[in-house]
Amino acid sequence: MLSETDISAISVTIKLALLSTAILIAIGTPLAWWLSQTKFKFKVVFEAIIALPLILPPTVLGFYLLMTLGSNSPLAGFLEYFGGGSIAFTFSGLVVGSVIYSLPFVVQPLQNSFSAVRIESLEVAATLGASNIDRFFTVAVPLARSGFITAAVLGFAHTVGEFGVVLMIGGNIPGETSVLSIAIYDHVEAMEYSQAHLLAGGLLVASFVMLIFVYLFNRHFSLVRSRDW
């Protein structure tokens, strides 16, 4: 059965994934909107930076995060000045790492569905008396809803599945920064295969169910929109 550390790893993981997803949507939405609308010449530079976590080894990312957020870093000194301190090896550190690591998984689907929103729809809304912000929330967001579902599920699932970054920046402290993927690794190291099976299998099924949900939703959505007679 699940041990106490397993259960705490599951709860830390879910907490981390939920919080990261919320922050990712909050940051990713304006970022994706800007990328989808701007004619800025160097937009590709921003796109590349956001996409970096897709190809970088997670340990590289984790290493630089550790350097940036660790106790000797200028940032930590800055935070200390305000009564804070280093967030390396804390839950907050994990959240920061996860957000950066999963950013492309949220920004890209959002950007794609924002790009598919026709400018004309927004112009129509303007002629009907809707201000900029009003148009964004009542036209662009509803038209891009499949992108939001995809982004949220991918952001959540990807955060659940990360390993390298959390190991580097979190340090596997039980109850604080020890997450599911590391717990599985620990079980395998300790040759506790049945417990590793339980966690791994659970993760597999949960991921599968989430993806089924995304595909079903998007399929239903596109069917509703394309029906025409």
């Binding site: 004309e120 729809s121 112009e123 129509v124 809304a125 002629t127 036209v139 509803p142 038209l143 809803r145 929109r225």
Partner: peptide
């Protein structure tokens, strides 16, 4: 203004 677009421009959501 009332503006009617070429393809009606109705919100299909």
């Amino acid at each position: 203004i009332g503006y009617v677009f070429q393809d009606a421009g109705l919100f299909d959501h």
